[in-house]
Amino acid sequence: MNKQMATYIQDNMTGIISKWQEQMKREQDDRSYQVISDEVMNQTSQEFAGLMLSSLLESHEAYEKRLQDFSEKVVRLGWSITYVTKAIDYFAEIVYEGMKLQGMITQENMDGFIHEFANWATPIRNSTLDIYSKTWERTVSLQKIALQELSASLIPVFDKVSVMPLVGTIDTERAKLIMENLLDGVVRHRAEVVLLDITGVPVVDTMVAHHIIQAADAVRLVGAKCMLVGIRPEIAQTIVTLGINLNDFTTTSTLQRGVEQALAWTNRKIVEVEEA
């Protein structure tokens, strides 16, 4: 029966892919067809159909390699696990219905084919989801590392004045990285004033505030002043509601005001120069 299934897919590949694409386009909750070009989607569809066929024809090692490559590709394209699962189910349904229309599946052999289709689709689904999950976890881990590296650097903007822009959620692991980079940067750049910019931090709760206060205390211990900038109105309201005490260091609503204050602390100011 596997041979009959493989022969049908090979002989009707174009029609199967066309029906499968139409079926997948009806999944309005997924944006896969909206965010990539038709050319890329057509190529991906061909690869997916080849993956489904290879599980019937190729050795286990060859199939696993193809499966790994495809899973990594759909993760990059942003396919959700739900979307991948539906893709497998729809492909199997289209092949089954097509074989029925051609008389290859009859009332007499239907039970056997149902069993074969289950044995075909279920392992593909399980293997795909397993590799997809591992690939996704690895991708997220790499993105997290990249985000940490990009969003926890102390940047000198003026002599003796440096800024650390914080982006994303601050957890205990990121707070440790922020503290290390902050102290290292203060010493390396000989900063006297450090501005912690939380404009890109979506939520400031008690834990986040605790990490920020610890960072400010550490900066003071190495002989520099710390200022918290980028406090949006909703963040200010949250800080007041939670009863978080930020009285020990200066706060401003914008980075621009923070820079002006930092320059004042270092006996400088920004002046406009009239054109001659």
Rank of each mutant, 00 (worst) to 15 (best):
residue 158 F to C: 12
residue 86 K to W: 13
residue 140 V to T: 10
residue 164 M to I: 04
residue 50 G to F: 09
residue 112 G to Q: 15
residue 160 K to P: 00
residue 95 V to I: 14
residue 136 W to K: 12
residue 75 V to I: 11
residue 49 A to G: 12
residue 141 S to R: 09
residue 167 V to T: 06
residue 55 S to N: 07
residue 153 S to W: 00
residue 65 K to C: 01
residue 131 I to L: 06
residue 125 R to S: 13
residue 56 L to Y: 09
residue 139 T to L: 05
residue 81 I to Q: 03
residue 117 F to G: 02
residue 115 H to N: 15
residue 66 R to K: 13
residue 118 A to K: 08
residue 119 N to W: 02
residue 164 M to Q: 00
residue 106 T to L: 07
residue 175 A to L: 05
residue 178 I to T: 05
residue 40 V to F: 01
residue 158 F to R: 06
residue 72 E to V: 15
residue 135 T to Q: 10
residue 108 E to F: 12
residue 113 F to E: 06
residue 90 Y to M: 04
residue 95 V to D: 05
residue 58 E to V: 03
residue 108 E to Y: 12
residue 163 V to F: 01
residue 93 E to A: 15
residue 147 L to E: 09
residue 81 I to K: 07
residue 147 L to A: 11
residue 43 Q to M: 11
residue 105 I to V: 08
residue 109 N to M: 11
residue 91 F to P: 01
residue 164 M to S: 00
residue 69 D to W: 07
residue 102 Q to P: 08
residue 140 V to L: 14
residue 79 W to F: 14
residue 111 D to R: 13
residue 67 L to T: 11
residue 68 Q to R: 14
residue 128 T to I: 08
residue 125 R to P: 06
residue 53 L to A: 00
residue 60 H to C: 06
residue 149 E to T: 11
residue 57 L to E: 11
residue 134 K to S: 08
residue 158 F to K: 14
residue 65 K to D: 10
residue 92 A to C: 05
residue 172 T to N: 07
residue 35 V to T: 15
residue 120 W to Y: 02
residue 84 V to M: 13
residue 120 W to S: 03
residue 86 K to A: 13
residue 87 A to M: 08
residue 45 S to M: 11
residue 132 Y to E: 01
residue 132 Y to N: 07
residue 163 V to Y: 06
residue 110 M to P: 07
residue 159 D to T: 13
residue 144 K to R: 14
residue 120 W to G: 02
residue 177 L to C: 04
residue 57 L to Q: 12
residue 68 Q to I: 06
residue 134 K to A: 08
residue 86 K to S: 05
residue 107 Q to H: 14
residue 128 T to Q: 13
residue 48 F to V: 08
residue 65 K to S: 05
residue 149 E to C: 07
residue 157 V to N: 02
residue 47 E to Q: 09
residue 95 V to Y: 00
residue 177 L to S: 05
residue 90 Y to R: 10
residue 102 Q to N: 14
residue 129 L to Q: 11
residue 119 N to A: 12
residue 111 D to V: 15
residue 161 V to F: 05
residue 81 I to L: 04
residue 38 D to S: 09
residue 110 M to G: 08
residue 158 F to M: 15
residue 75 V to H: 00
residue 100 K to V: 13
residue 49 A to I: 12
residue 60 H to F: 10
residue 144 K to V: 04
residue 94 I to H: 09
residue 106 T to D: 15
residue 64 E to K: 10
residue 57 L to D: 12
residue 166 L to K: 03
residue 128 T to V: 05
residue 167 V to C: 03
residue 47 E to S: 03
residue 57 L to T: 09
residue 105 I to Q: 06
residue 47 E to A: 05
residue 43 Q to W: 06
residue 46 Q to C: 13
residue 148 Q to M: 12
residue 155 I to Y: 01
residue 173 E to G: 05
residue 137 E to K: 02
residue 38 D to A: 05
residue 145 I to R: 04
residue 127 S to M: 12
residue 147 L to H: 10
residue 46 Q to Y: 07
residue 157 V to K: 00
residue 68 Q to N: 10
residue 151 S to A: 09
residue 173 E to R: 14
residue 156 P to M: 03
residue 109 N to D: 08
residue 75 V to G: 00
residue 61 E to M: 07
residue 112 G to C: 10
residue 168 G to I: 13
